[in-house]
């Protein structure tokens, strides 16, 4: 069916294209700029010649960063905390989320537990009491300080139980009749059916761990224990002087070069999983929404 759209409609569509295009470019432009700086020569960068295309293409900044040292130590800490953190949080979410998905008739204490968890979303002790708890437990400078305090992500727990609640009851009933226990039901029936929400939560939790920096700053005293984002916070955001001195005798790259290269490298894991993130993100929003 082809018909002529009115002038007003066509102007509106044209405006939509223009604004969306401008906003999209504005979103990506600064990132492209940093990418270009990371691949440009020191001279070009210092002269302010670099826009979004590398000038005097050079890999020196990456060579410098790759040479090892603090960046790699921090990168390793982040990889460790992300892997461990995801596994641990998922265990808690699955184990606690399944009973919570039951109705009050099936599990009489369900609403009590639910409020027990939800209350932590309404009120929190704040930064200082949390810090004291972590330090009294002797977790300062330990990897566990980055994992345990947020090991039970209550909001994701709620998303998970909402999803399980929406699964058809028939299969579970049938398993009970066959004499299956709760563990079997969870492992053999619920989990295989929950793959979409599990994938979504794994991605969310992994990104949160990768991007976290504040816990590293307050719970880690020794810089060699910093996760990547905390380490970068000290060199990227805090005054550039530090980066200058740490470059030492390296003369073929500027602090801005190395800073840009490190930003790009830290962003890389996110960019790699981004297609999945995008796919599951919308899904997660729809999956976790409350039905009825």
């Amino acid at each position: 069916m082809h018909y002529k759209e009115s002038l007003g409609s066509r102007i509106y569509v044209a405006i939509a294209y223009i604004i969306v295009t401008i906003f999209s470019i504005a979103c990506i432009y600064p990132i492209l700029h940093v990418l270009a700086v990371s691949f440009s020569s020191k001279v070009a960068v210092n002269a302010g010649l670099v826009n979004i295309i590398p000038v005097d293409f050079s890999l020196d900044a990456y060579e410098f960063v790759m040479r090892g040292g603090a960046f790699f130590t921090a990168f390793a800490v982040s990889v460790k905390r992300t892997l461990l953190g995801v596994v641990i949080s998922m265990v808690f979410v699955i184990l606690a989320g399944y009973p919570l998905s039951k109705t009050k008739r099936q599990f009489s204490a369900r609403n009590f537990y639910m409020w027990f968890f939800v209350f932590t979303m309404l009120f929190s002790g704040g930064m200082i009491p949390s810090y004291i708890v972590v330090s009294k437990l002797g977790l300062i400078d330990s990897l566990w300080a980055l994992i345990l305090p947020a090991a039970v992500p209550v909001y994701y727990l709620i998303l998970f139980q909402n999803f399980v609640k929406s699964l058809p009851d028939g299969l579970i009933e049938a398993a009970y009749i066959d004499g299956a226990g709760e563990g079997t039901v969870l492992g053999k029936i619920i989990l295989p059916l929950s793959k979409p929400i599990l994938a979504t939560l794994v991605l969310f939790i992994a990104v949160n761990h990768w991007n976290a920096w504040f816990d590293g700053m307050i719970y880690m005293n020794r810089p060699e224990n910093y996760p990547l984002q905390t380490y970068l916070q000290t060199i990227v955001v805090q005054v550039n002087l530090k980066a200058v001195t740490s470059l030492g005798d390296v003369t073929n790259i500027s602090p801005q070069n190395s800073k840009s290269a490190q930003i790009i490298l830290a962003m890389l894991p996110i960019v790699i999983v981004y297609p999945f993130l995008q796919k599951y993100f919308t899904k997660g929003i729809v999956l976790g929404s409350v039905k009825g």
Binding site: L95, A96, P99, T120, F123, G125, S130, L148, A151, L157
Partner: peptide, 28 residues
């Protein structure tokens, strides 16, 4: 219902330690 309580136990302990104890800490 005991399997349900058991499944919830680990998460409950973690939340008590890292959420409820700090809440009591506001007495500071």
């Amino acid at each position: 219902e005991w399997p349900f309580h058991l499944m919830l136990l680990p998460a409950v302990i973690m939340v008590i330690i890292f959420n409820y104890v700090p809440m009591a800490g506001v007495s500071l």
